[in-house]
């Protein structure tokens, strides 16, 4: 028989096949496995159940489990694709994929639109932006008078709300982002390019083996 290589996959309960996840995302199989090392460390930080709960997510972000943060909660809700109150490995990889430097711009725009459309009405409304702005001011311990906050909102909606109906729809958001690309800066994580060097231990736990047959 000739000697050639094929992939043998050892299934580990609790997470999706790295080969399939790699085929659905911008990550290679090795990168998916390196992400599993990160996932394992976050998902076992409080309860070792192979799932990331809200508290574990906050702990990983802030190194503080009790720090309530509107934006971290919003990100968690978007990562929790199946709305189970926890993030499984498939959710984690597919969500982080949007943050990959090579991910389509459209996906990043969609993610930010959903992030800021907190009531899921299909539009970003003024009261939502005000709530987020106040949360940001609290977080950064910056004090601004209510008139100043209203002035920022006026300016923002004057710029973004082209049809002046008091809310920002998907196409207005796309238009605003194209004029202000820095608004998408949070959507690209250069770390994702170097994930295998950040978590080299994936090599020892690899589920995908090269075997000679």
């Amino acid at each position: 028989m000739g000697c050639f290589h094929s992939k043998v996959i050892k299934q580990v309960p609790g997470h999706e096949d790295p080969v399939i996840l790699a085929s659905q995302t911008a990550f290679t199989v090795s990168e998916v496995e390196a992400l599993f090392e990160l996932f394992k460390s976050i998902s076992s930080s409080l309860i070792d159940d192979g799932l990331i709960n809200r508290e574990e997510f906050q702990l990983a972000l802030f190194k503080n489990r009790n720090k309530e943060n509107l934006f971290a909660n919003r990100i968690f809700d978007l990562f929790d694709v199946k709305q189970k109150g926890v993030i499984d490995f498939g959710d984690f990889v597919r969500s982080l994929n949007v943050f990959h430097p090579n991910a389509p711009q459209e996906d990043k725009i969609d993610f930010t639109f959903k992030l800021y459309d907190m009531d899921c009405t299909g539009c970003i409304e003024r009261h939502e932006v005000k709530q987020m702005l106040i949360a940001l001011l609290c977080e950064s311990e910056m004090k601004l008078a209510d008139e100043t906050v209203e002035a920022i909102l006026d300016k923002t909606f004057l710029d973004a709300d082209v049809n002046q109906d008091g809310k920002i729809d998907r196409s207005e958001w796309q238009n605003l982002v194209s004029r202000n690309p820095s608004l998408l800066k949070i959507m690209t994580l250069p770390y994702l390019r170097d994930i295998t060097t950040t978590f080299p231990s994936f090599v020892f736990n690899s589920e995908v083996e090269e075997v000679a047959t």
């Binding site: 702005l133 940001l136 608004l183």
Partner: peptide
Amino acid sequence: IAPVTMNAFELISTSQGLNLSSLFEK
């Protein structure tokens, strides 16, 4: 930059809660 001259989303996007790079910091 005075906040009033900034777009609200520019300010919001500086939130630590939106900075996922801290997930990768060991």
